[in-house]
Design a protein around this nucleic acid. Structure first.
Lengths: 207, 207
DNA sequence: GTCTATAATGAGATAGAC
DNA sequence: GTCTATCTCATTATAGAC
């Protein structure tokens, strides 16, 4: 039962927003009484914390995805898609983190922690790629790339939502975001259209 | 009087957030009575609309900044700093646009419009730079660069705020954001450290 | 113009019958 | 477990005296 309730809440929060979805609306969607909902979750905070636990687990898993197979080809693509997929599934966390903050003041710290862990892992992926000769970028360049990639990925959905006012966006629109990230890396890729034009210099060492 | 009130509101909204700052707090900061505040602005919507008008004007001005002197050296730097400065001055608009939406449902459209206009102008700047030989990037590459630059710029403050939980961020932290944008363009710059490594190919035409 | 009530909402949460 | 009724609380907005 709890699982179904959380699934419905996730759906509603993602589709609308955390603050605009009231307990009454959740109860309605569940076909249960408003008061009865409090039988399972006393407060709205408990709902959001339960959902956030799932998100946190997913984020940690996505961040570590493929760390065991550093030089598998296509790992980079998998990694990106995995990450975008998670962000789509829990887009309310990104979009509404300020209203979440209001009802669950401990979340910002946990979000910051996820950011740190995720960015550290992403950095490792880039370092691996550099070591494998797939990416030609200095340590500083990799640092900038990592931050820029992180920002574009994290805010892609929000950016799209604002740009296309009115029109709803779908999971399919993530592809465009992935394309933007690819374009970010293109100049540094050892293979590929744009990267071909850039010859690594002697002073640029992989590590 | 209205001007002073708006200045105080802007300050409060930027510092805290639109939704968490109540009419009572605004009145307190102004040293006036809560009821009396409604004498100047009947609703909170009117306050936010007045502030948004200013932001909109600023945004349009910043977007057009230097369009008349296409090839002035340093124009690019000016443009960026101007834009970041505006975003800092009205950061509550970026940060709290969802709560603004709630009280002023017409804002999303106006924000989308500003995005469109701003992005179109930014695209012109990049085209100018390409035409002047400062930027070596195909039309597609410029399109991607524009979007990525827009996203990084628009969300830099939010990104920092989340990353550095607890610690307040200041106007000085914008420099780092500008650095990230510069790094984004670096591989495509005809001059500059990273760009030096990238030789333009014959098939890459400026336009 | 300025203030003191006070109304009007809208939401989350609780008590207690069944 | 499920429902009805109610409480509390914050916040915006209004009415009207001065």
């Amino acid at each position: 039962m709890r699982a179904r309730m959380l699934a419905v809440c996730l759906e509603l929060f993602n589709e609308h927003s955390f603050s605009s979805v009231t307990i009454a609306q959740i109860a309605l969607a569940l076909g249960m009484n408003e008061g009865h909902l409090h039988y399972y979750f006393q407060t709205k905070q408990q709902i959001v914390l339960a959902l956030f636990d799932d998100f946190e687990r997913g984020a940690m898993a996505a961040a570590s995805h493929g760390l065991d197979a550093p030089d598998r080809p296509g790992r980079y693509v998998d990694y990106l898609q995995n990450w975008f997929s998670l962000m789509w599934g829990y887009r309310f966390v990104y979009r509404d983190h300020r209203s979440l903050h209001r009802v669950a003041p401990m979340l910002p710290q946990r979000i910051a922690h996820i950011y740190q862990a995720g960015q550290a892992r992403l950095r490792l992926v880039l370092d691996d790629m550099a070591a494998a000769g797939l990416l030609v970028a200095s340590s500083d360049e990799r640092a900038s790339l990592m931050v820029n990639a992180w920002i574009i990925a994290s805010y892609w959905i929000d950016y799209l939502t604002i740009s296309r006012t009115g029109k709803a966006i779908s999971r399919a629109d993530l592809a465009e975001g992935i394309h933007q990230i690819n374009q970010l890396f293109a100049p540094y890729l050892a293979t590929g259209r744009a990267g071909a034009a850039r010859k690594p210099m002697a002073k640029e060492k992989a590590r």
